[in-house]
Design a protein around this nucleic acid. Sequence first.
DNA 1: AAGCAGGACAACCGCAATGGA
DNA 2: ATCCATTGCGGTTGTCCTGCT
Length: 358
Amino acid sequence: MGHHCCSKQKVKRGLWSPEEDEKLIRHITIHGHSCWSSVPKLAGLQRCGKSCRLRWINYLRPDLKRGCFSEQEERTIIDVHRILGNRWAQIAKHLPGRTDNEVKNFWNSAIKKKLIAQGFDPNTHNLLSRNHHQNNKIKSSCKSKTSNHPNSTSVFTIETLSSSKEVGVISMDIIKASLAALPLIASTTTITIPHSQTSWDPLCESSLTSTIYNYMNPVSIPTTTNIENSNLATIEYQNQSTSNNLLSSSSLTPSGFGIINENCMWDVTDFEPQLIRSTNGQEEVQLVQEEGAQVLQLQENICQEVYKVNHEFNNNGQISENVTFDNSNFDFEFVDSALMPCEIFANVNSIDQLAWDC
DNA sequence: AAGCAGGACAACCGCAATGGA
DNA sequence: ATCCATTGCGGTTGTCCTGCT
Protein backbone atom coordinates (compact mmCIF):
# COMPACT_ATOMS: atom_id res chain seq x y z
CA MET A 1 0.00 0.00 0.00
CA GLY A 2 1.39 3.35 -0.97
CA HIS A 3 0.32 6.74 0.26
CA HIS A 4 -3.23 7.80 -0.31
CA CYS A 5 -1.84 10.25 -2.85
CA CYS A 6 -0.25 7.54 -4.91
CA SER A 7 -2.12 4.37 -4.06
CA LYS A 8 -2.73 3.65 -7.73
CA GLN A 9 0.93 3.76 -8.57
CA LYS A 10 3.58 1.12 -8.17
CA VAL A 11 5.85 2.86 -5.76
CA LYS A 12 9.07 1.86 -4.18
CA ARG A 13 9.52 2.52 -0.49
CA GLY A 14 12.38 2.55 1.93
CA LEU A 15 15.83 3.97 1.57
CA TRP A 16 16.84 5.76 -1.57
CA SER A 17 19.59 4.33 -3.73
CA PRO A 18 22.36 6.55 -5.14
CA GLU A 19 20.88 6.02 -8.61
CA GLU A 20 17.51 7.30 -7.48
CA ASP A 21 19.15 10.28 -5.83
CA GLU A 22 21.00 11.04 -9.01
CA LYS A 23 17.83 10.88 -11.08
CA LEU A 24 16.00 13.18 -8.73
CA ILE A 25 18.84 15.68 -8.51
CA ARG A 26 19.24 15.74 -12.28
CA HIS A 27 15.55 16.27 -12.83
CA ILE A 28 15.10 19.02 -10.29
CA THR A 29 18.28 20.76 -11.35
CA ILE A 30 17.02 20.95 -14.92
CA HIS A 31 13.27 21.25 -14.52
CA GLY A 32 12.67 22.34 -10.97
CA HIS A 33 9.82 20.95 -8.92
CA SER A 34 6.80 23.01 -9.76
CA CYS A 35 4.57 19.99 -9.15
CA TRP A 36 5.86 17.23 -6.94
CA SER A 37 3.23 14.78 -8.03
CA SER A 38 4.59 14.84 -11.56
CA VAL A 39 8.25 14.66 -10.55
CA PRO A 40 8.49 10.84 -10.18
CA LYS A 41 7.07 10.22 -13.64
CA LEU A 42 9.18 12.87 -15.31
CA ALA A 43 12.32 11.84 -13.44
CA GLY A 44 11.78 8.15 -14.11
CA LEU A 45 11.40 7.17 -10.49
CA GLN A 46 9.19 4.51 -8.95
CA ARG A 47 8.42 6.77 -6.03
CA CYS A 48 5.50 8.92 -5.08
CA GLY A 49 5.78 12.70 -5.27
CA LYS A 50 5.60 13.00 -1.56
CA SER A 51 8.60 10.77 -1.11
CA CYS A 52 10.54 12.72 -3.75
CA ARG A 53 9.75 15.98 -2.06
CA LEU A 54 10.85 14.67 1.31
CA ARG A 55 14.06 13.23 -0.09
CA TRP A 56 14.90 16.51 -1.80
CA ILE A 57 14.04 18.76 1.13
CA ASN A 58 15.66 16.65 3.82
CA TYR A 59 18.66 15.26 2.03
CA LEU A 60 19.46 16.32 -1.51
CA ARG A 61 18.94 20.08 -1.43
CA PRO A 62 22.24 21.77 -2.22
CA ASP A 63 21.91 24.39 0.51
CA LEU A 64 21.75 21.87 3.32
CA LYS A 65 24.31 22.06 6.06
CA ARG A 66 25.41 18.59 6.96
CA GLY A 67 27.22 17.46 10.06
CA CYS A 68 26.90 18.01 13.76
CA PHE A 69 24.95 20.84 15.28
CA SER A 70 27.08 23.59 16.73
CA GLU A 71 26.71 24.82 20.29
CA GLN A 72 25.18 28.01 18.93
CA GLU A 73 22.64 26.03 16.93
CA GLU A 74 21.80 23.94 19.96
CA ARG A 75 21.21 27.04 22.05
CA THR A 76 19.04 28.51 19.35
CA ILE A 77 16.94 25.37 19.19
CA ILE A 78 16.45 25.39 22.94
CA ASP A 79 15.61 29.09 23.01
CA VAL A 80 13.10 28.88 20.20
CA HIS A 81 11.62 25.61 21.38
CA ARG A 82 11.03 27.24 24.73
CA ILE A 83 8.73 29.68 22.99
CA LEU A 84 7.26 27.72 20.11
CA GLY A 85 7.23 24.16 21.38
CA ASN A 86 7.37 21.35 18.83
CA ARG A 87 6.96 23.58 15.81
CA TRP A 88 9.95 22.12 14.07
CA ALA A 89 9.49 23.86 10.78
CA GLN A 90 9.41 27.24 12.51
CA ILE A 91 12.43 26.36 14.60
CA ALA A 92 14.33 25.21 11.53
CA LYS A 93 13.79 28.62 9.92
CA HIS A 94 16.12 30.03 12.55
CA LEU A 95 18.82 27.56 11.53
CA PRO A 96 19.96 28.10 7.95
CA GLY A 97 20.75 24.86 6.19
CA ARG A 98 18.90 22.70 8.68
CA THR A 99 15.62 20.92 8.08
CA ASP A 100 12.71 20.48 10.40
CA ASN A 101 13.32 16.74 10.37
CA GLU A 102 16.94 17.20 11.30
CA VAL A 103 16.07 19.58 14.14
CA LYS A 104 13.38 17.22 15.37
CA ASN A 105 15.74 14.26 15.35
CA PHE A 106 18.44 16.23 17.09
CA TRP A 107 15.99 17.36 19.71
CA ASN A 108 14.70 13.86 20.39
CA SER A 109 18.07 12.20 20.37
CA ALA A 110 20.27 14.74 22.13
CA ILE A 111 18.78 17.94 23.53
CA LYS A 112 15.84 16.29 25.23
CA LYS A 113 18.10 14.01 27.20
CA LYS A 114 20.51 16.78 28.01
CA LEU A 115 17.72 18.95 29.42
CA ILE A 116 16.38 16.10 31.51
CA ALA A 117 19.88 15.43 32.83
CA GLN A 118 20.11 19.10 33.80
CA GLY A 119 16.80 18.88 35.62
CA PHE A 120 14.53 20.56 33.08
CA ASP A 121 11.33 19.26 31.66
CA PRO A 122 12.00 19.27 27.89
CA ASN A 123 8.36 19.96 27.13
CA THR A 124 7.83 22.94 29.39
CA HIS A 125 11.46 23.93 30.03
CA ASN A 126 10.53 24.26 33.66
CA LEU A 127 12.57 22.76 36.41
CA LEU A 128 11.46 19.23 37.11
CA SER A 129 11.62 19.87 40.84
CA ARG A 130 13.41 22.12 43.27
CA ASN A 131 15.22 19.22 44.90
CA HIS A 132 16.25 17.89 41.56
CA HIS A 133 17.92 21.03 40.32
CA GLN A 134 19.51 21.79 43.66
CA ASN A 135 21.20 18.43 43.67
CA ASN A 136 22.11 18.38 40.05
CA LYS A 137 25.09 19.29 38.01
CA ILE A 138 23.37 22.42 36.86
CA LYS A 139 24.46 23.79 40.18
CA SER A 140 27.99 24.08 38.99
CA SER A 141 26.99 25.65 35.72
CA CYS A 142 25.23 28.38 37.65
CA LYS A 143 28.52 30.11 38.10
CA SER A 144 28.18 31.22 34.53
CA LYS A 145 25.07 33.21 35.29
CA THR A 146 27.11 36.31 35.85
CA SER A 147 28.40 36.21 32.32
CA ASN A 148 27.43 39.39 30.56
CA HIS A 149 25.64 40.15 27.34
CA PRO A 150 28.53 39.89 24.91
CA ASN A 151 28.73 36.20 25.63
CA SER A 152 25.07 35.64 25.28
CA THR A 153 23.84 33.84 22.24
CA SER A 154 20.18 34.48 22.67
CA VAL A 155 17.97 34.81 19.64
CA PHE A 156 16.42 37.88 21.19
CA THR A 157 18.39 40.96 20.39
CA ILE A 158 17.25 44.53 20.08
CA GLU A 159 19.16 47.49 18.76
CA THR A 160 18.61 51.18 19.13
CA LEU A 161 18.56 53.60 16.27
CA SER A 162 20.92 56.02 17.90
CA SER A 163 23.66 53.68 18.97
CA SER A 164 23.06 50.66 16.76
CA LYS A 165 24.37 48.72 19.72
CA GLU A 166 22.76 45.71 21.20
CA VAL A 167 21.06 46.80 24.38
CA GLY A 168 18.58 44.10 25.19
CA VAL A 169 19.21 40.43 25.53
CA ILE A 170 17.25 37.66 27.13
CA SER A 171 19.24 34.50 27.49
CA MET A 172 17.29 31.40 28.40
CA ASP A 173 20.48 29.63 29.34
CA ILE A 174 21.29 32.28 31.87
CA ILE A 175 17.72 32.37 33.13
CA LYS A 176 17.68 28.63 33.64
CA ALA A 177 21.06 28.55 35.27
CA SER A 178 20.10 31.38 37.57
CA LEU A 179 16.79 29.84 38.50
CA ALA A 180 18.60 26.77 39.66
CA ALA A 181 20.64 28.73 42.13
CA LEU A 182 18.02 31.08 43.49
CA PRO A 183 16.77 30.92 47.06
CA LEU A 184 13.14 30.85 48.05
CA ILE A 185 11.33 34.12 48.02
CA ALA A 186 9.25 35.35 50.92
CA SER A 187 5.64 34.32 50.73
CA THR A 188 4.31 37.86 50.53
CA THR A 189 5.62 41.17 49.31
CA THR A 190 4.20 44.38 47.99
CA ILE A 191 4.69 46.67 45.07
CA THR A 192 3.44 50.22 44.99
CA ILE A 193 2.34 51.86 41.82
CA PRO A 194 1.66 55.61 41.88
CA HIS A 195 -1.55 56.83 40.33
CA SER A 196 0.33 59.50 38.48
CA GLN A 197 2.31 56.98 36.55
CA THR A 198 0.47 56.94 33.28
CA SER A 199 3.02 56.74 30.51
CA TRP A 200 3.35 53.00 30.82
CA ASP A 201 1.06 52.13 33.66
CA PRO A 202 -1.33 49.34 32.70
CA LEU A 203 -4.95 50.31 32.42
CA CYS A 204 -6.55 47.33 33.95
CA GLU A 205 -5.89 44.74 36.59
CA SER A 206 -4.74 42.12 34.15
CA SER A 207 -2.21 44.53 32.78
CA LEU A 208 -1.15 45.37 36.28
CA THR A 209 -0.58 41.71 36.80
CA SER A 210 1.53 41.65 33.68
CA THR A 211 3.69 44.44 34.96
CA ILE A 212 4.20 42.81 38.30
CA TYR A 213 5.02 39.48 36.74
CA ASN A 214 7.34 41.17 34.37
CA TYR A 215 9.64 42.36 37.07
CA MET A 216 9.16 39.64 39.58
CA ASN A 217 12.42 38.38 40.86
CA PRO A 218 13.02 35.79 43.53
CA VAL A 219 16.21 37.45 44.72
CA SER A 220 15.45 41.07 44.12
CA ILE A 221 12.03 42.14 45.28
CA PRO A 222 10.71 45.12 43.33
CA THR A 223 10.09 47.78 45.94
CA THR A 224 9.54 50.99 44.05
CA THR A 225 8.81 52.15 40.58
CA ASN A 226 9.78 55.60 39.39
CA ILE A 227 9.14 57.53 36.28
CA GLU A 228 12.17 59.72 35.90
CA ASN A 229 10.95 61.28 32.71
CA SER A 230 8.60 60.44 29.94
CA ASN A 231 11.10 58.14 28.30
CA LEU A 232 12.46 56.06 31.11
CA ALA A 233 10.94 54.06 33.90
CA THR A 234 13.10 52.60 36.59
CA ILE A 235 12.16 49.72 38.77
CA GLU A 236 14.25 49.02 41.81
CA TYR A 237 14.68 45.68 43.42
CA GLN A 238 15.57 45.01 46.98
CA ASN A 239 17.16 41.91 48.30
CA GLN A 240 14.83 40.00 50.57
CA SER A 241 17.50 38.81 52.95
CA THR A 242 19.49 42.03 53.09
CA SER A 243 16.66 44.47 52.88
CA ASN A 244 18.80 47.59 52.98
CA ASN A 245 20.98 46.68 50.08
CA LEU A 246 19.75 47.58 46.70
CA LEU A 247 20.70 44.75 44.48
CA SER A 248 19.81 45.80 41.02
CA SER A 249 17.61 47.86 38.84
CA SER A 250 16.37 47.59 35.33
CA SER A 251 15.84 50.52 33.05
CA LEU A 252 13.13 50.37 30.52
CA THR A 253 11.86 52.72 27.91
CA PRO A 254 8.12 53.19 27.96
CA SER A 255 8.00 50.91 24.98
CA GLY A 256 9.13 48.12 27.21
CA PHE A 257 12.45 47.61 25.48
CA GLY A 258 15.66 48.28 27.27
CA ILE A 259 18.35 46.72 29.30
CA ILE A 260 17.17 43.59 30.96
CA ASN A 261 19.28 43.10 33.99
CA GLU A 262 20.42 39.53 34.16
CA ASN A 263 20.13 39.58 37.93
CA CYS A 264 16.47 40.07 37.33
CA MET A 265 15.11 36.60 36.81
CA TRP A 266 11.64 35.23 37.14
CA ASP A 267 10.55 33.19 40.06
CA VAL A 268 9.91 29.49 39.90
CA THR A 269 6.61 30.03 41.64
CA ASP A 270 3.48 31.99 40.81
CA PHE A 271 2.42 35.10 42.64
CA GLU A 272 -1.20 36.04 42.82
CA PRO A 273 -1.50 39.83 42.80
CA GLN A 274 -4.29 41.28 44.88
CA LEU A 275 -5.30 44.91 44.75
CA ILE A 276 -5.58 45.74 48.45
CA ARG A 277 -6.52 49.40 48.77
CA SER A 278 -5.81 52.93 47.69
CA THR A 279 -3.91 55.14 50.10
CA ASN A 280 -2.31 58.52 49.49
CA GLY A 281 -2.83 58.30 45.80
CA GLN A 282 -1.20 54.93 45.56
CA GLU A 283 -2.48 51.53 44.70
CA GLU A 284 -1.03 48.82 46.87
CA VAL A 285 -0.81 45.40 45.41
CA GLN A 286 -0.04 42.37 47.50
CA LEU A 287 1.54 39.39 45.88
CA VAL A 288 0.68 36.09 47.46
CA GLN A 289 2.75 33.09 46.67
CA GLU A 290 0.83 30.07 45.52
CA GLU A 291 2.00 26.76 46.90
CA GLY A 292 3.35 24.47 44.22
CA ALA A 293 2.66 26.85 41.41
CA GLN A 294 4.35 26.58 38.06
CA VAL A 295 7.23 28.57 36.70
CA LEU A 296 6.32 31.71 34.79
CA GLN A 297 6.61 31.38 31.09
CA LEU A 298 9.16 33.40 29.21
CA GLN A 299 6.62 33.48 26.45
CA GLU A 300 4.31 35.36 28.73
CA ASN A 301 6.99 37.86 29.54
CA ILE A 302 7.78 38.44 25.92
CA CYS A 303 4.11 38.97 25.31
CA GLN A 304 4.11 41.51 28.08
CA GLU A 305 6.99 43.36 26.52
CA VAL A 306 5.10 43.36 23.28
CA TYR A 307 2.01 44.54 25.06
CA LYS A 308 3.86 47.51 26.40
CA VAL A 309 5.12 48.36 22.96
CA ASN A 310 1.62 48.20 21.65
CA HIS A 311 0.18 50.06 24.58
CA GLU A 312 2.61 52.89 24.19
CA PHE A 313 2.06 52.89 20.51
CA ASN A 314 -1.66 53.19 20.90
CA ASN A 315 -1.40 55.99 23.40
CA ASN A 316 0.96 58.17 21.48
CA GLY A 317 0.02 57.27 17.96
CA GLN A 318 3.59 56.44 17.11
CA ILE A 319 6.35 54.26 18.34
CA SER A 320 9.01 55.62 20.66
CA GLU A 321 11.75 57.31 18.67
CA ASN A 322 14.62 55.58 20.36
CA VAL A 323 13.49 52.16 19.28
CA THR A 324 13.73 51.03 15.71
CA PHE A 325 12.53 47.80 14.22
CA ASP A 326 14.18 48.28 10.88
CA ASN A 327 17.67 48.14 12.28
CA SER A 328 17.02 45.45 14.80
CA ASN A 329 17.41 41.73 14.81
CA PHE A 330 13.98 41.53 16.26
CA ASP A 331 12.06 38.78 14.54
CA PHE A 332 8.48 39.88 14.20
CA GLU A 333 7.24 36.65 12.76
CA PHE A 334 8.86 34.84 15.62
CA VAL A 335 7.38 37.03 18.31
CA ASP A 336 4.06 37.09 16.55
CA SER A 337 3.88 33.35 16.66
CA ALA A 338 4.88 33.41 20.30
CA LEU A 339 2.15 35.93 20.91
CA MET A 340 -0.63 33.82 19.47
CA PRO A 341 -1.33 31.47 22.36
CA CYS A 342 -1.12 34.23 24.91
CA GLU A 343 -4.58 35.33 25.94
CA ILE A 344 -3.75 38.03 28.41
CA PHE A 345 -3.40 40.88 25.97
CA ALA A 346 -6.80 41.87 24.93
CA ASN A 347 -5.49 45.04 23.33
CA VAL A 348 -2.80 43.41 21.25
CA ASN A 349 -3.73 42.59 17.71
CA SER A 350 -0.46 41.61 16.15
CA ILE A 351 3.15 42.57 16.25
CA ASP A 352 2.82 43.25 12.55
CA GLN A 353 0.64 46.16 13.44
CA LEU A 354 3.40 47.56 15.58
CA ALA A 355 5.88 47.26 12.81
CA TRP A 356 3.92 48.58 9.91
CA ASP A 357 1.49 51.11 11.29
CA CYS A 358 4.31 53.55 11.96
C1' DA B 1 32.11 -14.16 16.65
C1' DA B 2 27.29 -13.77 17.69
C1' DG B 3 23.54 -11.65 19.77
C1' DC B 4 21.47 -7.84 21.78
C1' DA B 5 20.39 -3.00 23.09
C1' DG B 6 20.38 1.59 22.27
C1' DG B 7 21.22 5.60 19.44
C1' DA B 8 21.03 8.23 15.20
C1' DC B 9 18.76 9.38 11.41
C1' DA B 10 16.08 8.54 7.19
C1' DA B 11 11.63 7.77 5.72
C1' DC B 12 6.71 7.04 6.26
C1' DC B 13 1.96 8.11 7.82
C1' DG B 14 -1.88 10.77 8.68
C1' DC B 15 -3.84 15.03 9.24
C1' DA B 16 -4.39 19.98 8.30
C1' DA B 17 -3.87 23.78 5.34
C1' DT B 18 -3.97 25.70 0.89
C1' DG B 19 -5.29 26.76 -3.66
C1' DG B 20 -7.49 25.99 -7.95
C1' DA B 21 -11.44 24.26 -10.59
C1' DA C 1 -19.63 27.17 -1.45
C1' DT C 2 -17.82 22.80 -2.31
C1' DC C 3 -14.72 19.40 -3.83
C1' DC C 4 -10.33 17.62 -4.67
C1' DA C 5 -5.42 17.55 -5.58
C1' DT C 6 -1.38 19.07 -3.62
C1' DT C 7 1.72 20.61 -0.17
C1' DG C 8 3.41 21.14 4.52
C1' DC C 9 3.99 19.59 9.03
C1' DG C 10 4.63 16.81 13.25
C1' DG C 11 4.54 12.28 15.21
C1' DT C 12 6.00 7.76 14.57
C1' DT C 13 8.34 3.87 12.66
C1' DG C 14 12.02 1.43 10.32
C1' DT C 15 16.74 0.64 9.33
C1' DC C 16 21.44 0.84 10.01
C1' DC C 17 25.38 1.36 12.94
C1' DT C 18 28.01 0.92 17.09
C1' DG C 19 29.25 -0.66 21.44
C1' DC C 20 28.72 -3.96 24.98
C1' DT C 21 28.29 -8.61 26.85
